[in-house]
Design a protein around this nucleic acid. Structure first.
Length: 274
DNA sequence: CGTGCTGTTGCTAG
DNA sequence: ACTAGCAACAGCAC
């Protein structure tokens, strides 16, 4: 499910619902995620603590707790967070449940089990191996055309793979890479190193515009993304190329193409994107 | 029934 | 130092 807009949507939902709540119970129903959960460590670090903030870095959620500890979470491909009452039926593939003192529960569900849940000391966050190599946040003003132009100089990587590289810029996955490249009128197959400076500016603008609009609409729901209330997003209505193979390009009418690039489907207009 | 997709990402092999 | 491919997994469309 999640690229930056979906994770940000979940972050906002959690922030609005569970700030100030106290974690009274932790139930690890299935520890076998890609990074196995250590239930004893998780309990020791979070029980009795208050949720003081919910942050996002790249596609990671950071639930800040009292006592300088955090829960670092990733939704993988199929992860969902819900806030429900303890009496509500537990859906299949619910792997971790945080019981709150007020009778509600934060539930982490992830059928494909690519996600992660891990307690971390705040002072260990900055040096956490999963976070250290991450590039700039795309919506930060420090992320500019200059950033990617400089970074791309000798790269032969296709542009699409380049902007999906989390050390170049974070949060851009398969859907938003396709959309941003279409808006910037750049071919996904172009070598990143052959990007002109003005094109880099265009690309960065397109990435920012696409992500901002997707956040505003609560993310993209294609198969199963849902926010903490269980509702889908609306950005799928605005998709210009993703999953639209064969349909006419909005700008020129030529059919949208689909080609596999690095094992992932790429959607683009052969006319408009050069 | 199988087959081939699916929103991620760290690691390994080349 | 690059990149491509794979591995973790369940579900769904065809």
């Amino acid at each position: 499910m999640p690229e930056l807009p979906e994770v940000e949507t979940v972050r906002r939902g959690l922030e609005s619902l569970v700030m100030g709540a106290v974690i009274a119970r932790v139930d690890v129903r299935d520890a076998r995620l890609r990074r196995p959960i250590d239930p004893a460590a998780l309990k020791k670090d979070v029980l009795g603590r208050t949720i003081v903030a919910v942050e996002r870095r790249a596609k990671y959620l950071i639930v800040r707790l009292s006592g300088e500890r955090s829960i670092l979470m990733h939704l993988g491909m199929s992860g969902r967070m819900r806030v429900l009452n303890a009496a509500d039926p537990v859906e299949p593939h619910t792997h971790v449940v945080f019981g709150l003192e007020d009778g509600r529960e934060i539930r982490f569900r992830d059928p494909r089990r690519f996600g992660m849940v891990e307690a971390v000391l705040d002072r260990a966050l900055e040096t956490h191996p999963l976070l250290t190599h991450l590039g700039p946040e795309p919506l930060a003003h420090t992320f500019t055309g200059e950033t990617i132009h400089a970074r791309s100089r000798r790269s032969k990587k296709p542009l699409k793979n380049f902007i999906m590289d989390q050390s170049v810029v974070v949060g851009v996955g398969n859907i938003y890479a396709a959309e941003a490249l279409y808006i910037a009128r750049l071919s996904p197959f172009r070598a990143a190193g052959r990007l002109a400076r003005a094109e880099a500016d265009r690309l960065v603008d397109a990435i920012k515009t696409t992500l901002r609009e997707a956040v505003r609409l609560g993310g993209t729901t294609l198969n199963d993304f849902a926010n903490v209330d269980g509702d889908g997003g609306y950005f799928q209505i605005s998709l210009l190329v993703y999953d639209r193979a064969g349909e006419p390009c909005n700008a020129c009418g030529a059919p949208i193409r689909r080609r596999v690039l690095g094992g992932r489907s790429s959607f683009y207009c052969r006319n408009c994107q050069r």
